Amino acid sequence: MTITMYGITNCDTIKKARVWLESRDVPYRFHDYRTEGIEAGKLNGWVGEVGWEKLLNKGSTTFRELPEADRQGLDENKAKALMLAKPTMIKRPVLEVGDQILVGFKPDVYEGAVGK
């Protein structure tokens, strides 16, 4: 089973999730939004799976620094455009475990998904 973690390296939640996986010898690949960005097709798949409301991190510094007009009237298309333009607005981490998408870090959910 292939596991990929998406996020940014300096995020505290990413650090916790990485420590959790590594302490259980769970192999994974890390995809850094800052250096690798995010493909539209990948984001569209996630939105279809979990919804844009779960993926868009309205509490992020990047989102809060947007002009008021950009934060108002959010819908799926506007949210996807914002996340593609500034992937740091995507909640972290996003973990792909085979066909499953996990958003955020919850040890009990990770435990069930990776079985370690």
Rank of each mutant, 00 (worst) to 15 (best):
K42A: 15
L56Y: 01
L66T: 04
Y28V: 01
C11Y: 05
N44W: 09
I14Y: 03
A17P: 00
S60E: 04
G48Y: 14
E49W: 09
W52D: 01
R64P: 02
A81V: 09
K54A: 14
T4A: 13
L21R: 00
M5F: 10
T2K: 12
P67M: 07
Y28R: 03
K91W: 03
Y110L: 04
L56D: 00
Q72K: 15
N44F: 07
E111W: 07
I3G: 00
M89A: 04
D12A: 15
F105W: 06
L43P: 00
E111C: 10
M5Y: 00
E49I: 11
P67Q: 11
I8A: 09
I101W: 02
A85F: 11
A81T: 10
R18P: 01
M5N: 02
K106R: 14
D75V: 13
V109I: 15
G104R: 03
R34Q: 12
D32H: 07
V47F: 06
S23E: 08
Y33T: 02
T4M: 15
D70A: 14
A79E: 05
K16L: 13
T35W: 06
I14C: 12
W20E: 03
T62A: 13
N57M: 09
I14Q: 03
I3K: 02
F63E: 05
K15Y: 08
G115M: 08
W46Y: 06
T4R: 02
G98H: 03
S23M: 14
K80W: 06
V103D: 02
C11S: 12
L56R: 01
A40L: 14
T88W: 10
E76W: 07
A79W: 04
R64N: 08
N44G: 13
N77W: 11
G104T: 09
G37F: 09
E96T: 03
G59I: 13
R29E: 13
Q100L: 14
G112I: 06
